[in-house]
Simulated scan of single mutants.
Amino acid sequence: MSERFAHLNKLRNTSLSRGNKAERTDEKTDARSKTRRRRKPEAAQNEILDAAEAFLREHPFREMTVEDVMSRTGLSRPSFYEYFRDRHHLVIKLVERFGSSTYALAEQWLSGQGDPLNDLQEGAERLVAMYAEQGYLLRALADAASHDGEVEQAYRATINRLIEAAAARIRAGIEKGMVKNIDPSEVAAALVLMNERYLMERLWNQPKADPRAVADTIVAVWRRVLYAA
């Protein structure tokens, strides 16, 4: 009889233990769910974008999967599709974010509010620093653009935005007599596209050039084209 009671107590304790574990698991699940519900959409989207950037720092774009990205976040895999159609759409958003960052770095010169030569120097140094630091991301974006029409279109749109802004700045400089009488649109296109290629070649490939020398070279070319007598 005592053995039977001991056996029943053991079963009861095992059941209680499992119940407690289940409750703790449910509590953890509820806590994670509450955390996810509290996260704002913009914050969740940025978390996914940051995770994608982190992955691309270590791996090429062709190896990236949704699982790889979401495993680096505190979000569930299905959450990915609340913000992105697929990994190509994710890369398009990365391109747009990169474009906004690039524009912000050059905005001081583009706005025409300060001294043009000083603003040009500061803008070039910031741009070079970003290319040197985020070369892994830019290489991944270029790789994705070569395989996906939508990504390429987004990348081209980013470059065209910079060209249009530079053309407007050059045009304003011509009107003020500060810039030589040149074709604003064509000169802006030549300078921006030259910068893009030059930065890729000198800061991504080995041996990498000195960022300071790269920035000074860009400034020298722009000054000679725009401001030299």
Rank of each mutant, 00 (worst) to 15 (best):
L138T: 08
P78M: 05
R85V: 09
S101T: 05
D86E: 06
V91I: 15
A124K: 00
A106C: 08
Y136N: 07
V151K: 05
H88K: 01
M130T: 09
H89L: 00
G112P: 00
L105V: 10
S111C: 02
G114D: 07
R126I: 09
P78H: 01
A129D: 03
F98K: 03
N118P: 01
L90N: 04
R126K: 10
E125F: 09
A106G: 04
Y83H: 14
L137G: 02
D115R: 01
G112N: 12
Y131I: 12
A157Q: 13
D115L: 05
P116D: 10
R77V: 15
D115N: 07
R97I: 15
I92Q: 01
A129K: 04
E133G: 02
R97H: 10
L90W: 07
L105Y: 04
E107K: 03
K93V: 13
R77L: 11
R126M: 13
E96Y: 06
L137R: 03
G123H: 02
E122C: 07
G149M: 13
E125V: 13
Y81R: 01
D115S: 03
Q134G: 02
E133Q: 12
A132M: 08
G123N: 11
Y103L: 09
E125Q: 14
L127K: 02
Q121I: 15
D86T: 12
A157C: 06
E125N: 09
V128S: 00
V91W: 00
S111I: 04
G123I: 14
P78L: 02
Y103Q: 03
A124M: 02
A124H: 04
Y131G: 11
A157I: 06
A129Q: 07
Y155L: 15
Q134I: 11
A145D: 11
G99V: 02
L117M: 08
G114N: 07
S146W: 14
R77W: 07
A140V: 09
R85Q: 09
Q153A: 05
K93C: 14
A144K: 02
E107L: 06
R156C: 03
A144L: 01
V95N: 10
E133T: 10
H89E: 11
G123M: 05
A140N: 04
M130R: 15
A132Q: 11
G135C: 14
L141C: 14
G149K: 10
H147G: 05
A142I: 15
H88E: 12
G149W: 06
G135H: 12
M130H: 08
G114R: 09
E152K: 02
Y155K: 03
E150H: 13
E96I: 14
P116R: 04
A104H: 15
D148C: 02
G112Y: 02
S100P: 00
Y83W: 09
R156G: 01
V128I: 06
Q134P: 00
L120P: 01
L90P: 00
T158C: 01
R87S: 11
S79K: 11
Y81I: 09
G135S: 01
Q113I: 08
R97M: 14
A144W: 08
A145N: 08
Q121T: 13
S146I: 13
R126V: 13
Q134H: 12
T102F: 08
L105N: 12
L141W: 08
R126C: 14
L94D: 07
G149S: 05
Y155C: 08
D148S: 12
E122T: 08
P116Q: 06
R139A: 07
N118C: 08
I92T: 13
E150A: 08
